[in-house]
């Protein structure tokens, strides 16, 4: 069996997803016979230039440099994986899309410092993405599982297109909505083992929204619980400000 050449790249991000990859490193090493880590600058000094069988990209696109880079990566990769919420949806920093571009570039840095800023987006807006691994941060197990499947030539379908509630209930938790705590679990992809709910905080939707999630009724439930549309919008846009659903909530509020 030919060893697959794996590459890891980073665009604009906190590097947390790469840290998760390092967490999975022991398991990755066990696959050493089948997978060769040929490019991973956070991990090693000598990195190959490609082409690669599988490229994992973390981080969002925030400027023209990122666009150029992601296009180059796509060209030299057979399979492209978007790792984490920045790469899949734009991430926390996509919240700046709500501000006019000319204002936002001056918000932190001195005038003239940022020259080529663009709208913040996931990499899928610029190139074709083969697989998405959701989460901020993502789950190490998801990465290993996907690589193992690709290694034997499977073309997996995402198995987490179910709400966080499934794992939350299977763990035996009492629903936070019953206790008056805001939770986006019913409209968010599972796979994190309901980690936030286990810690007593509601889900903020970091793994992205389900296509068929009933946003309208969840809004109704949350407003009945006493949350204002503004409070709900704030939580909805922490991770998912690029989502059409969030934009709709902001536009229509209770009349979603």
């Amino acid at each position: 069996m030919k060893r697959l050449k794996l590459a890891v790249f980073s665009l604009t991000s906190c590097d947390g997803c790469q840290v998760v990859l390092l967490q999975a490193f022991k398991q990755l090493l066990q696959l050493e016979r089948y997978i060769e880590i040929s490019h991973f600058p956070l991990l090693k000094d000598k990195n190959k230039r490609g082409p690669f069988d599988i490229s994992i990209v973390e981080g969002s696109v925030v400027n023209k440099r990122d666009i150029k880079k992601i296009k180059q990566i796509r060209k030299k990769s057979k399979i492209l994986i978007a790792l984490g919420t920045c790469a899949t949806h734009g991430g926390v920093q996509a919240v700046k899309n709500f501000m006019p571009q000319d204002k936002v570039v001056h918000a932190v840095y001195p005038p003239g410092f940022i020259k080529d800023a663009t709208e913040v987006s996931g990499i899928g807006r610029h190139v074709k993405v083969d697989y998405e691994i959701w989460g901020c941060p993502p789950v190490a197990e998801d990465i290993v599982k996907l690589l193992k499947k690709l290694m034997v030539g499977q073309k997996p379908k995402n198995i987490n297109e179910e709400p966080v509630c499934v794992e939350c209930r299977a763990l035996g938790h009492e629903c936070l909505l019953e206790k008056g705590i805001l939770c986006l679990g019913p409209i968010t992809h599972k796979g994190c083992n309901a980690i936030c709910i286990s810690a007593g905080r509601g889900c903020y939707g970091c793994r992205g929204f389900l296509n068929e999630g009933n946003v309208k009724q969840l809004l109704k439930k949350l407003t009945e619980m006493g949350y204002s549309i503004g409070q709900i919008e704030d939580i909805l846009s922490v991770y998912m400000s690029n989502s059409k659903k969030v934009k709709r909530v902001i536009e229509y509020g209770e009349n979603y």
Binding site: P163, C165, V166, R169, A170, C175, P186, I187, N214, Q217
Partner: peptide, 9 residues
């Protein structure tokens, strides 16, 4: 219905 599956779980 939120299709959350709590009922079947």
């Amino acid at each position: 219905c939120l299709s959350c599956a709590a009922c079947t779980i």
